[in-house]
Simulated assay, not measured.
Amino acid sequence: MGATTHKAIILMNLGSPDSTEVPDVKRYLMEFLMDKKVIDYPYLLRLLLVGGIIVPRRAPQSAEAYKRVWLPEGSPLIVLTQQLQEAVQHALPDVPVTIAMRYGNPSPKAAYDELLARHPQLKEVILLPLYPHYAMSSYETAVDYAKEIHQKGKYAFKLTTIPPYFGNEDYIRAQAASMQPYLEQDYDYVLFSYHGVPERHIRKGDITHKHCLQVADCCHVDSPAHAFCYRHQVFVTSEKVAAALNIPEEKWGISFQSRLGKEQWLLPYTASRFTELPAEGKKKILVACPAFVSDCLETLEEIGMEGKHSFLESGGESFTMIPCMNLHPLWVQAIGKWCSQIIHA
């Protein structure tokens, strides 16, 4: 590390089980779903629900789903995040780059300790959460956890976090460029599928307490609430990417996937749209998942396998899942640019 910087970068993603074995999947799901920012019920109720009902049922199912997408090197999310780290390291050879996961391994503590072991004079760590949009159950919990571990460990280095980049032109440009080749084929419709969240989370995160899901067309009416509103931010991303790609307004839409439980989540549900679109005459579709920057179980299996099957069974003719940005050069370039701005500030 150069004497003029003493800085390092951590790319932080969601995480993954250590293997496809049920005990590893169960351990991962317990950590994930017991996070009070994911399922924000009182602790004992959450423990009963997660430990007594959800995880025992879901762990074997999830283990089978992971087996369908697991790579020889391991979890797709982990492997792709490691490859992204290598690409960013190549772009910024003088600044150490490592990875951390919110759940599972490697943990933020492992990342901090690794960097310090290599560079005892470390003065600042730049944390880039690999979540473009702000949500309590993704960006917020990742940042809060990284900060908590930083404080508990009494690390001397400063921790600087890159804010959500849902509307950042570098991110939009990279997202659009990664999708562009797939739009050259004949298609009827582009569906932007985002990870869902409960509507209750949107209301809970509304700092004004009177805007989100209360004002007509709330996502397009200016409000301070938008800084923390996942729904508003996915609209911004979709509209900017669609404009960059010149997709006609009638040929694209938004939906939300990965619903858990019976309460109301953001609508429309992706699973429902897959069965409805063929009947609407949209039989050749492209599906993009801009909330994910690296392909994972939710894109490869839930969309690319289960979603495709559902759509074709409902009368669809052509289904193309557009891969996440993964290692797209413009995405690597964007990360390098954002981190360099902090490094040289």
Rank of each mutant, 00 (worst) to 15 (best):
G2A: 07
I9L: 15
I9Y: 08
M12T: 05
V22Y: 07
D24F: 14
K26Y: 05
R27W: 01
F32A: 04
F32N: 06
L33T: 01
M34N: 12
D35W: 09
L48A: 13
V50Q: 00
V50S: 01
I53D: 08
I54H: 00
R57N: 05
S62K: 02
A65Q: 11
K67R: 15
R68A: 15
R68Q: 11
V79F: 06
V88R: 00
Q89P: 08
A91T: 08
D94F: 10
V95S: 01
P96M: 03
V97I: 08
R102C: 13
Y103E: 00
G104P: 06
N105Q: 07
P108Q: 08
D113S: 01
L115F: 05
A117D: 14
P120E: 01
Q121W: 04
L122Q: 00
L122W: 00
K123W: 04
L127S: 01
L128W: 01
P129I: 03
L130P: 03
A135V: 11
M136G: 05
E140I: 06
T141R: 00
A142M: 09
D144P: 05
E148N: 13
I149C: 11
G153C: 01
A156L: 07
K158N: 14
T160D: 10
I162S: 07
I162A: 10
F166I: 01
N168I: 05
E169Q: 13
E169I: 04
Y171M: 04
A174M: 06
M179Q: 11
Q180F: 04
Y187A: 09
Y189R: 13
V190M: 14
F192N: 10
S193G: 04
G196I: 06
V197K: 05
P198E: 06
P198W: 08
R200Q: 12
R203N: 06
H209W: 03
K210L: 09
H211I: 09
D217Q: 09
V221P: 10
A225S: 15
A225N: 08
A227H: 15
H232G: 02
Q233V: 00
Q233W: 09
T237G: 03
E239A: 15
A243W: 07
A244N: 08
I247Y: 08
I254W: 09
I254V: 13
S255E: 02
F256M: 10
S258Q: 04
W265V: 14
L267N: 13
P268Q: 01
Y269M: 08
R273K: 10
E276R: 14
P278A: 15
A288T: 11
P290A: 08
D295N: 12
E298Y: 10
T299F: 14
H309Q: 15
S310E: 14
E313H: 11
S314K: 06
S318L: 03
T320Y: 03
C324K: 07
N326D: 07
N326F: 02
L327K: 05
H328G: 09
G336A: 13
G336P: 02
K337A: 14
W338D: 06
Q341V: 07
I343V: 05
